[in-house]
Simulated scan of single mutants.
Amino acid sequence: MTTPLLEVADLAVDFGSQPAVRGVDLTLRRGETLGIVGESGSGKSVTALAVLGLLPGAARVKGSVRLEGRELVGLPSRELAGLRGNKVAMVFQDPLSAFTPVYRIGDQIVEAIRVHQKLDRAAARTRAAELLDLVGIPDPRRALDSFPHEFSGGMRQRAMIAMAIANDPDILLADEPTTALDVTIQAQVLDVLRTAQRETGAALVLVSHDLGVIAGMADRVAVMYAGRVVETAPVDELFAHPRHPYTLGLIGAVPRLDGARGALVPIPGQPPAPGTLGGGCPFADRCPLVEDRCRTEEPALTGDGDHLAACLRADFLAGTRPAP
């Protein structure tokens, strides 16, 4: 379907005088996976949390977040609570802190089910066991009686995904769900996310700093830097023909198993701290293609078709493609 399920327009989030997100535009269609990638502090997680109104009280949110045409910014807490876990569900980065430590896993999943569905406790518990079985947790009925600390990190993340899909949401927001896991468990958790998406038909927003994860999971990618989207494109187009030096730098910093390039190629310098941005491109001090005009104006996100970039040298990069 071409009609967007979720539309984010000119989203801005400030913490006091510190801007964390600046004018983000995103669209998400049914069944689609949108990857959001960038360094720590680029605004990825804040953008995802702003969609569900999960930011702390000190945050000031402007712009528009529309779910099936319904505006979520400024929606009363009671109405947002009816959407959380039902229409839009969150898979948090750290499941150990996301689960309540003094309640059993089963009780927490049952509560998530019964908040939105008219089921008695026995039926909800049966459903919870089915969900744990779906995400690959052995002996799911016994696992329902475990506390979060009795699960390994991978099992906790599986249980978090089970809770997220309990009410067949239209959208899953996964905020760096594999960050604290080793590569073997990371692959298993990504398989579980694919299964969850297939079973529910949900669209997926996958926030990550791991380009390998994004390349394997996403249909489209939004690259964020200094609180805004600096490039967006279909995943194959983005990796084959990046049009922003930051995207090219992220790809160049990925380690290669074949050893063809030797040592990693880091991006020099650090991202700008919130509140320190000048009038030019925020990537200028780290950019190998910087020109004088880059320091006087911040480029708009422009381009042709589905491939947009916020760079004055985008046309140059589009014509100077990297080796395969």
Results as ranks from 00 to 15, higher is better:
residue 3 T to R: 14
residue 4 P to R: 03
residue 6 L to E: 13
residue 7 E to T: 15
residue 8 V to D: 11
residue 12 A to V: 15
residue 13 V to G: 14
residue 15 F to D: 07
residue 18 Q to S: 10
residue 25 D to S: 07
residue 30 R to C: 01
residue 33 T to D: 14
residue 35 G to M: 02
residue 36 I to T: 10
residue 37 V to F: 10
residue 43 G to A: 01
residue 45 S to E: 14
residue 45 S to H: 13
residue 46 V to F: 14
residue 48 A to C: 02
residue 50 A to K: 07
residue 52 L to P: 03
residue 56 P to M: 12
residue 57 G to N: 03
residue 59 A to Y: 00
residue 59 A to F: 09
residue 59 A to I: 12
residue 59 A to L: 03
residue 60 R to I: 13
residue 61 V to A: 15
residue 62 K to S: 14
residue 62 K to T: 13
residue 63 G to W: 09
residue 65 V to K: 05
residue 65 V to N: 14
residue 68 E to Q: 09
residue 75 L to I: 08
residue 83 L to R: 05
residue 84 R to V: 06
residue 85 G to H: 00
residue 88 V to M: 03
residue 88 V to D: 04
residue 91 V to A: 09
residue 96 L to F: 12
residue 98 A to Y: 01
residue 100 T to Y: 07
residue 101 P to R: 08
residue 102 V to F: 11
residue 108 Q to D: 04
residue 117 Q to E: 06
residue 122 A to F: 02
residue 124 A to Q: 10
residue 130 E to D: 04
residue 132 L to T: 07
residue 132 L to K: 08
residue 135 V to H: 05
residue 135 V to P: 00
residue 145 D to H: 13
residue 147 F to W: 12
residue 152 S to Q: 04
residue 153 G to L: 07
residue 154 G to W: 01
residue 156 R to W: 01
residue 158 R to G: 03
residue 158 R to N: 10
residue 166 A to H: 06
residue 167 N to H: 12
residue 178 T to P: 11
residue 178 T to G: 12
residue 186 Q to C: 05
residue 190 L to S: 12
residue 191 D to C: 07
residue 196 A to Q: 11
residue 197 Q to M: 08
residue 205 V to I: 06
residue 213 V to E: 11
residue 217 M to L: 14
residue 220 R to P: 02
residue 222 A to P: 13
residue 222 A to L: 00
residue 222 A to N: 05
residue 222 A to F: 11
residue 227 G to A: 13
residue 227 G to R: 09
residue 228 R to S: 15
residue 229 V to P: 14
residue 230 V to E: 13
residue 232 T to N: 06
residue 237 E to D: 15
residue 239 F to A: 06
residue 245 P to T: 00
residue 246 Y to D: 10
residue 247 T to D: 08
residue 247 T to P: 08
residue 250 L to W: 02
residue 251 I to V: 10
residue 251 I to G: 05
residue 253 A to T: 02
residue 260 A to T: 04
residue 261 R to M: 07
residue 262 G to T: 12
residue 262 G to E: 12
residue 263 A to H: 05
residue 263 A to T: 06
residue 265 V to Q: 11
residue 267 I to P: 10
residue 284 A to Y: 04
residue 285 D to S: 02
residue 285 D to G: 03
residue 286 R to F: 08
residue 293 R to K: 09
residue 296 T to A: 13
residue 296 T to L: 08
residue 302 T to L: 13
residue 306 D to C: 05
residue 307 H to T: 11
residue 308 L to V: 06
residue 309 A to P: 01
residue 310 A to V: 06
residue 310 A to M: 04
residue 311 C to S: 00
residue 314 A to F: 02
residue 318 A to R: 14
